[in-house]
Simulated scan of single mutants.
Amino acid sequence: MSEIKHGAPQIPNPLRVFITFESTGWFDTTQEQKEQELLPKLNGILEEWQHNGSELLGTFDRDILTAGHAGPVNWHACFLYNIPDLQTVTNMTHAFRAAGLDRYFRLEASIGRPFFLLEK
């Protein structure tokens, strides 16, 4: 078996970013608030992300076998992106703050890289 040489990880360009999304105050709102205020704002931000130079690679929503609060994993859904730079990642998370959605949802971005044995 040949030895695999594994040096220090290289920061990819574009950045590989895993964003976790958790509903927090969402559960304390009315159906009217959800439909008329929160979902339009949320959808607007997600649409903006389509035009910021990022590439959405995939999404994952845990709602098939869960309901209610996120529990110990602390997220309901996640998004995997290639994002051009760190400022764009910051702008994406800040969009929730600027829209007041951070009262209802929590985002957390993690930067990684493609897994070297599966993506070369």
Rank of each mutant, 00 (worst) to 15 (best):
L56A: 02
P9G: 02
A99T: 13
L15F: 06
R97Y: 04
F115H: 08
L57A: 07
F18N: 09
E37P: 14
L46H: 14
S110L: 07
V73L: 15
N82L: 09
R62F: 08
D63H: 15
H76K: 00
N52K: 15
L46Q: 08
T90D: 07
A77N: 11
T93F: 04
L86E: 13
Y81F: 13
E119N: 11
H69S: 05
P84I: 02
W26T: 10
S2Q: 12
P114S: 02
W26D: 11
F18T: 09
G68S: 08
E22N: 14
G58M: 13
S23N: 12
Q10F: 12
L101K: 14
L15I: 01
L57F: 14
P114D: 01
T90K: 15
F60Y: 08
N52P: 04
W75M: 03
G53N: 02
G44N: 14
L39S: 00
P9E: 02
E108G: 03
W49I: 00
T93V: 10
I45T: 04
P9H: 03
S110C: 09
L80R: 06
G58Q: 07
L42A: 13
A109H: 04
I83W: 03
Q36C: 05
N91K: 13
L39I: 02
R62Y: 12
G112C: 08
D85I: 03
A8M: 13
W26C: 11
T20W: 00
I64P: 13
L39A: 03
G25E: 01
R103F: 01
S23E: 12
M92A: 14
G68A: 11
I111Y: 13
A67Y: 01
N74Q: 15
K34S: 11
P84R: 09
P9L: 00
T93W: 09
Q31H: 14
E32Y: 15
S54I: 02
L118I: 03
L38F: 06
T90Y: 08
R16E: 05
L80S: 04
D28N: 15
P12I: 01
S54C: 10
T88F: 06
L15S: 04
L15V: 07
T93A: 01
Q10Y: 08
I111T: 06
T20R: 04
G58A: 07
N91H: 06
N74W: 13
